[in-house]
């Protein structure tokens, strides 16, 4: 299913898997992001309105998670893919796969909880630590650059935010890759 990576892509993944390299990359990307997106002043902040045990949670990840029967993320465009995929909450884990060539997902392929902790959250609902799971969760592919950042920012991310509201989600748990 997963397309074979080139040697360069594999080496690049290994290079960026070193935390010190990743932090340097983060600094550079931070500067570029500042040039690409005009962030509104201030950081938005919403408050939790209920005790955790009554909250409904949705999971979001940029690890490239999607269902086998959904269109994979676009790996051909160097600027990435700002689209998202809906993951039904009651999905069987073997229906989920990862398409993302910009990080090494060998471990996440073996244990999805490394990037998308759906099983742990199902258990926390069972333990009544958290009230319930949203009917759907959302997968993105984290590599997004240039003009596509604006598509994410102005179109797909607000669209997902509206869906979370529609699903009466009380908080979202976000994992990068």
């Amino acid at each position: 299913m997963t397309k074979k990576l080139t040697l360069w892509e594999r080496l690049s993944q290994q290079f960026f898997a070193v935390p010190a390299v990743a932090q340097l990359w983060a600094k550079r990307t931070a500067q570029q992001t500042n040039q690409l997106v005009a962030l509104v002043d201030g950081i938005p902040f919403a408050r939790l309105r209920k005790p955790l045990a009554q909250c409904r949670v949705a999971l979001l990840t940029t690890a490239g998670v999607h269902l086998h029967n959904q269109t994979p993320y676009n790996m051909e465009n160097p600027d990435g893919d700002p689209t998202y995929r809906e993951i039904p909450t009651d999905v069987a884990l073997d229906q989920i796969t990862i398409t993302h060539k910009y990080y090494d997902h060998t471990d996440a392929d073996v244990d999805l909880n490394v990037v998308f902790p759906l099983l742990h959250f199902r258990d926390l609902v069972e333990k009544q630590v958290i009230g319930s799971l949203a009917p759907r969760h959302f997968g993105f592919m984290g590599h997004i650059d240039q003009a596509l950042i604006n598509v994410l920012n102005q179109q797909t991310a607000p669209e997902v935010a509206a869906k979370l509201r529609a699903d009466q989600v009380d908080f979202a748990f976000l994992t990068p890759a």
């Binding site: 940029t62 994410l152 509201r165 989600v169 976000l174």
Partner: peptide, 20 residues
């Protein structure tokens, strides 16, 4: 950016970061 969009819509978020 996704966290900001969601929070701006009034839904609290918590995000794990690997890139400070």
């Amino acid at each position: 950016l996704i966290a900001r969009s969601i929070e701006a819509a009034g839904v609290p978020t918590v995000t794990i970061s690997l890139a400070k």
